[in-house]
Simulated scan of single mutants.
Amino acid sequence: MSNIPGDLKFLSSHEWIRVESDGTVTVGISDHAQDLLGDIVFVELPEVGQSIDAESDAAIVESVKAASDVYSPLSGEVIEVNALLEDQPEIVNSSPYEDGWFYKLNPTNMNELENLLSPEDYSEACED
Rank of each mutant, 00 (worst) to 15 (best):
L74F: 13
M110G: 01
S30P: 04
D31C: 02
W101K: 11
N106G: 00
D69L: 15
I79R: 07
E98R: 02
P89V: 09
I4R: 08
F102D: 00
C126K: 12
Q50G: 05
N3M: 14
F10Q: 05
D99A: 15
G76L: 07
L8C: 02
E55T: 06
D87V: 00
S72W: 02
E62G: 01
S95E: 10
A33K: 10
V48C: 04
Y97K: 03
A66L: 06
V19G: 06
V48G: 02
E98T: 03
N106M: 11
Q34W: 10
S13M: 08
L37I: 09
N3W: 10
T24H: 13
P46Y: 11
D87T: 01
L74M: 15
V70W: 01
E44D: 15
I91S: 05
E44I: 04
N3R: 09
N82G: 06
Y122L: 05
P119S: 03
V81F: 05
L11F: 10
N115I: 08
F10A: 07
L74R: 12
S12Y: 00
D35N: 13
L8G: 00
V25G: 06
E80I: 00
Q34N: 09
S94N: 08
S56A: 10
L84C: 02
E77Y: 07
R18L: 14
E77M: 08
F102H: 12
A83I: 06
G6Y: 04
S13D: 14
D31K: 05
S12A: 15
E15T: 14
N3Q: 13
G49A: 03
F102K: 00
Y71M: 09
N3D: 14
L36Q: 15
N93L: 09
S21I: 07
D128P: 01
D69C: 11
L8T: 02
A66I: 00
V92W: 00
P46A: 11
N106P: 00
V70P: 10
P119Q: 07
C126W: 03
V25H: 05
G28A: 03
W16D: 02
E114A: 11
S30E: 07
H14K: 10
E80V: 03
P119G: 02
V41F: 12
I4G: 06
G38C: 13
K9N: 13
I29H: 02
L8W: 05
G6F: 01
M110C: 03
V48S: 01
Y103T: 03
V64R: 09
L37W: 03
E90A: 06
T26S: 14
T26Q: 13
Y103S: 05
L36W: 04
K65W: 05
V78N: 01
M110V: 04
E55I: 01
E80Q: 13
